[in-house]
Nucleic acid binder design. Structure first.
Lengths: 211, 211
DNA sequence: ACCGGAGTGGTAGTAACTACCAAGTCGGTA
DNA sequence: TACCGACTTGGTAGTTACTACCACTCCGGT
């Protein structure tokens, strides 16, 4: 059990990790991802290149790390299994987005949200990051299918779930892109709901908080 | 106009290109993608590593090159704009798949189809290839949206199209994965239709050739 | 005071690429 | 037939992401 061993160690570790990532995203945004070397990031964060690789397995992970997936999977597992698949997944995605962007809205976005936007812009504009980000979505798809609790031994049921989840995630991704394009002005949950409606029709999105 | 200049030159070029790719896919399948260097591929194809890079910009492109996208975009542009979006896209995807896999079915698959399967397996199992493949799908999404001929100046219309196309492509991808898993035993167009139905419901897939 | 383990740094090496330049080869022309 | 331009290929050297392997330092508990 290497965790919980010491709060001070964990704090320092998380601290340097945040520092490195913050400098990385800043440099990538300023100079461009490809034009910035890992050594540049290390120097900006006042650590050695080695340390960067200790905290982030690849250069791409300097931008891509997040636990959005875990959040969604939890929402899914906690949702009622009686609703149709797409509706169930859609609700979970919207709720997770609401949790993620909860905070100041309008003109005064929280610092965390600004950081999220900066990362998202990098993911969308940089080919290497975009590719790996989409692959992360693919991994998230598998996680959601598992969280659905469907009978994965039956190939047909699994196939059905895979298709539904993949389509929902694609719609969400469209919403994410648009959110980044509009600099987070529109509320992300609403955008996701709109994207789901565009893809699946009016009857899919439940009118939860706003109706 | 550097093409059409000489058929002999073009033939030789296409020939070496095919040779390199064939050896690459073979070696990747035998030894694994990461365990095979570009130099290995070059030696197997009896060319220099330089030549490999001349024909394929990146190592990943040794597996990923195809013109499936062009095919789909043509199908889309030729489809009637009166039908609902998802139905229109779905039909195009199914038709394109039918064109792509046309040939011997059942136990005797055409050599080209075996090659396609081998490439698909690599794309699904190798993280680096999977990521870039998904990014190609993202590019295809943009191409399809353009081919739809919708009013891209209106952000809402464009957003609607993006979401619908993305969801359809995700469903198709699920079908592709399943097709590869079952070694191409099931007919690809049928699988895609099934995936679309799973995601969008019964009323989306038109009963064209089989009903 | 002391030891184990976590975090960090250095060195050297692999492999994917990218200029930059040199050589051979094919296509049409004087 | 001799020749020139364009295409294709090969070689060299360099950059960069990433990976062992080993050594040092500092925190946390005995």
């Amino acid at each position: 059990m290497p965790d919980q061993h010491s709060t001070l160690r964990a704090q320092r570790r998380a601290e340097t990790q945040r520092t490195i990532q913050a400098h990385a995203v800043r440099l990538f945004t300023e100079r461009g991802y490809d034009a910035t070397t890992v050594t540049d990031v290390a120097e900006a964060a006042r650590v050695s290149p080695m340390t960067v690789y200790r905290h982030f397995p690849t250069k791409e992970d300097l931008v891509l790390v997040d636990q959005h997936g875990r959040l969604v999977a939890e929402q899914i597992a906690a949702s009622s299994a009686t609703q149709p698949l797409v509706r169930r997944i859609g609700s979970a995605l919207i709720d997770a987005a609401a949790t993620l962007t909860r905070g100041g809205h309008g003109d005064d976005l929280a610092a965390g949200e600004q950081f999220l936007l900066a990362r998202l812009r990098l993911m969308i504009l940089t080919p290497a990051l975009r590719a790996k980000h989409l692959d992360n979505h693919y991994a998230l798809q598998q996680a959601i299918v598992d969280a659905l609790g469907a009978d994965t031994t039956d190939p047909d049921t699994a196939f059905h779930a895979q298709a539904a989840v993949g389509a929902c995630l694609a719609a969400m991704h469209t919403a994410l892109v648009r959110w980044a394009e509009t600099d987070g002005q529109t509320e992300l949950p609403d955008l996701i709901a709109k994207a789901l409606t565009a893809a699946f029709g009016d009857d899919v999105v439940d009118t939860g908080p706003d109706a």
